[in-house]
């Protein structure tokens, strides 16, 4: 599986979504450096989450009899529902803080897209 390209795309997507949402609260010229630096923590979080939850499912379940498409169709619905539940809980617990909303929204969208990138890779 193309883990590195998946992580790179996910990291970029997460950063864009995070700052589109967080930027609605406050944004100016000085923030550009912060935005670029934010790639580092976002990359670490994306790596941990994607490798620890999505990649491991594909790695464990994909075999000759069980395709990536089947893995996606079997596990993604439950993954999405649990991830959404955690995101809603986190957002409500934070009192709808804009940075928390940005974090969980970017995490949910990025992990969902990451599932698709993994599932759509051609199986060897």
């Amino acid at each position: 599986m193309h883990v590195v390209s998946n992580l790179a795309k996910s990291c970029l997507l997460a950063t864009v979504i995070f700052w589109i949402i967080a930027g609605t609260d406050y944004m100016d010229m000085d923030m550009i450096l912060v935005i670029f630096l934010s790639f580092i923590p976002i990359f670490f979080i994306a790596t941990i989450v994607i490798l620890g939850s999505i990649y491991v499912i594909f790695w464990l379940r994909v075999n000759e009899n069980f395709s990536k498409r089947q893995v996606y169709k079997t596990f993604y619905p439950y993954y999405a529902i649990i991830a959404f539940g955690i995101a809603v809980f986190g957002i409500i617990s934070s009192g709808f803080d804009i940075y928390i909303i940005a974090f969980f929204t970017s995490a949910f969208i990025t992990t969902s897209q990451s599932w698709i990138w993994f599932a759509k890779e051609k199986q060897r």
Binding site: R69, Y72, Y76, P77, A80, I81, F84, S112, Q113, W115, I116, A119, K120
Partner: peptide, 21 residues
């Protein structure tokens, strides 16, 4: 409930996945 919840939160991604096929 399961289908309703899944449709509401991830319908877009599910359809996006189906597009290639």
């Amino acid at each position: 409930w399961l289908n309703g919840l899944y449709t509401s939160i991830a319908g877009f991604f599910h359809r996006n996945f189906e597009v290639n096929d």
